[in-house]
């Protein structure tokens, strides 16, 4: 991997999570989560499966509802008020493990739908924006095709472009490379690195530790629904403090 990115992080707070708890039925998935993300920060969340990483970032754009505590995104508190939720969702982009492109719409339509109907941008302008971002993820020539005609890596890059078209201030990535063939992982990671270079605030749930080393300015390790350890990547990887972290790192880096 290339050398570490050096990027400015501002003092402005983008996301603030305070003593947040969530239960699925009686199962306590997230326990007393405290997390502050500044604008421009790039955070990688890792941990064993079932540790609540995905649930955490899904709470941040209200795909999951939290039960106690506070989540403040971009200065707005997430409550059950649907107007607030829709506003926050249009400011926060999300990329899913399984892409979730809309199979009945062309690539271009996938990218222009929300800008046209949520942001009320004229169709022509939305299409120009969409082409700009499709060029950025290096697949402008696929604009007229349908998602089913693209490879997994291409689909994931379209999904990233679709989120970017809303000009979000924060991007959430939920295991964006886990469903991809090995040779496609790099093209998606390259796109994400480029995004980081542009100063996007990002939270990525991923097991790509190379990516974490290169891009993240903080790595968070979760286990059993709680944040067990967080540190800057160098210290996190070279000198983990908790036993759980050591065990986890030895398992994923051991071979």
């Amino acid at each position: 991997m290339a050398e570490k990115l050096k990027l400015e992080v501002s003092d402005e707070i983008a996301i603030k999570v305070e003593s947040m708890n969530k239960w699925f039925g009686s199962f306590h998935v997230l326990r007393d989560i405290d997390l502050t993300v500044n604008r421009g920060e790039r955070i990688v969340v890792c941990g064993p499966s079932g540790s609540g990483k995905s649930t955490l970032i899904r709470c941040i754009n209200a795909l999951e509802e939290h039960q106690t505590g506070q989540i403040i995104v971009d200065g707005t508190e997430l409550t059950s008020d649907i107007k607030n939720i829709d506003r926050i969702r249009s400011e926060v982009g999300m990329v899913f493990q399984h892409f979730n492109l809309f199979p009945h719409l062309s690539i271009l339509e996938n990218c222009t739908l929300a800008p046209i109907w949520v942001r009320k941008i004229p169709k022509k302008e939305a299409e120009e924006t969409a082409m700009h971002f499709l060029e950025k993820v290096k697949i402008p020539e696929q604009a007229e095709k349908y998602p089913g005609q693209l490879s997994g890596g291409q689909q994931q890059r379209v999904a990233i472009a679709r989120s970017l078209c809303m000009r979000p201030r924060i991007m959430l990535f939920d295991e964006p490379t886990s469903a991809l063939d090995p040779e496609m992982i790099k093209e998606v990671l390259d796109t994400m690195i480029e995004l980081a270079e542009d100063g996007m605030t990002m939270i990525c749930v991923t097991h790509e530790m190379g990516f974490a080393r290169q891009v993240a300015n903080r790595v968070i390790f979760m286990d059993d629904g709680q944040i067990v350890e967080q540190n800057e990547p160098k210290k996190f990887f070279n000198n983990p403090q908790s036993d759980r972290t050591k065990l986890f790192l030895s398992q994923i880096l051991g071979h």
């Binding site: 754009n61 795909l63 649907i82 829709d86 506003r87 969702r89 249009s90 926060v92 982009g93 999300m94 899913f96 979730n100 492109l101 809309f102 739908l113 929300a114 109907w117 949520v118 679709r162 989120s163 809303m166």
Partner: peptide
């Protein structure tokens, strides 16, 4: 979820 996440009501 994808429809929700791009801000559609």
């Amino acid at each position: 979820e994808a429809a929700d996440s791009i801000g559609l009501d």
